[in-house]
Design a binder for these strands. Structure first.
Ligand SMILES: [Mn+2]
Ligand SMILES: [Mn+2]
Ligand SMILES: [Mn+2]
Ligand SMILES: [Mn+2]
Lengths: 149, 149
DNA sequence: TTCATATTGTAGCCAAAACTACATTTTGAC
DNA sequence: GTCAAAATGTAGTTTTGGCTACAATATGAA
C-alpha cells in the first residue's frame, strides 16, 4: 500500500497527468475515423472527380453499409453532404479538415521515411499514427525535416 | 467516371493496398486499449505492489465500472487474472505483452524527444502513437537512436 | 424499351467502451 | 465488535463502428 522506498522504481506519472494523457488519446481516437473518411473523400474527389459510397467502402475495406452509416455521421458532424446516387461532397469545414489531415499525413510519412522506414511501412503506419500527432509534435517534425534537407 | 488524364493528379494507392492499410490500422486500434491496460497494470504492480481496479480507473481517467468491465475483457483474452478485492495480476501472456509494450512506448518517446518534441508532448502523443508502430518501424527507430547516440 | 446488374439504402444484429445509478462486500477507525 | 466509508461489483443505457440480408433505385447493354 505504501511506497516501498521510492528509490529505484518505475516512474509512474502523477495520476492527474496520466489521466489527462489517456483522455487526450481517447478523444483523438474518436475523431480518427472521421479524419480518414474526409481525407479519402478529398482524394477521390480530386483523383476521380467523384466519391461514391461503394468506392469509399472498397478503399477502406469495409462493407458499403458501414460506409453509408459513417457518411451519415459525417453529415451529422457537418463535414460532408450527400444526395442519393450523386456521391459524397465535403462542406467547407470538411475541406478544411481534409487539408489539415492531408498535410499531417504527408509530414508523418516523410518523417518516417527520413528515419529509415520503408515506403510501404511508412504509409501503413502513418495511417494510424497521424491521428495522434499533436500540433506541437507536428511543428517539431517540420523543423526536423527542414534541418536535414 | 473515367480518369481524366492520370498525369498530374493525386496519388491514390491501389484499392487493395489501401484497404489492407486501413484494415491493419483498425486491427491495431482494437488492441490498443488492451495494451494500455496491461502496461499500466505492470507499472502499478512494480511501482505500488498491487493494481487495484480503482487505481487503474483513476489513472486512465475512466469510471471504475468501465475499468472493471475492461479488466473482464482482459481476463477473457487470457491476459490478466483477478480475484474480487485482491487486485489484478497479469498472466504469463500478459507479462510478455506488457514487456513488449513497455519497450515500444519507451522507444517511441525517445524518438520523439530526439526529433525535438518536448518531454510532456512526447509522453502524451506516444500514448496514442505507440499502438500503430509496426515491428519494421520499431527497428528503424532503434537504428536511428543508436546511430545518433 | 426492357431488364439485368450495379449501386444505394434500410433493417436488424453484435461487441466494445463509455456512462450513471444502485447493490454488495471489505476494511479500518473507533 | 460495530459500522461508516471505500472498494468492488452489477444492471441498464448510449454511441460507435462493424457485419449480413434484403429492398429499392439507377444505369447501361442489348
Ligand atoms: Mn489514418
Ligand atoms: Mn491518412
Ligand atoms: Mn497507449
Ligand atoms: Mn503506453
Amino acid at each position: 500500500m505504501h511506497p516501498v522506498g521510492k528509490g529505484l522504481m518505475a516512474k509512474l506519472p502523477a495520476e492527474g497527468t496520466q489521466a489527462r494523457r489517456f483522455g487526450k488519446t481517447r478523444s483523438a481516437q474518436s475523431t480518427a475515423l472521421h479524419e480518414d473518411y474526409v481525407e479519402l473523400i478529398a482524394d477521390l474527389l480530386e483523383g476521380e472527380g467523384e466519391a461514391r459510397p461503394t468506392d469509399i467502402a472498397r478503399r477502406l475495406g469495409v462493407s458499403h453499409a458501414t460506409a453509408i452509416k459513417s457518411i451519415a455521421r459525417l453529415k451529422r458532424a457537418g463535414l460532408a453532404t450527400a444526395r442519393p446516387y450523386r456521391g459524397v461532397f465535403l462542406t467547407e469545414k470538411g475541406r478544411a479538415l481534409a487539408e489539415r489531415v492531408r498535410l499531417r499525413h504527408r509530414l508523418v510519412v516523410d518523417v518516417l521515411r527520413a528515419l529509415g522506414v520503408s515506403s510501404e511501412a511508412a504509409e501503413a503506419d502513418a495511417e494510424g499514427i497521424e491521428h495522434y500527432v499533436s500540433e506541437h509534435t507536428l511543428k517539431a517534425f517540420a523543423q526536423f525535416l527542414k534541418s536535414r534537407a
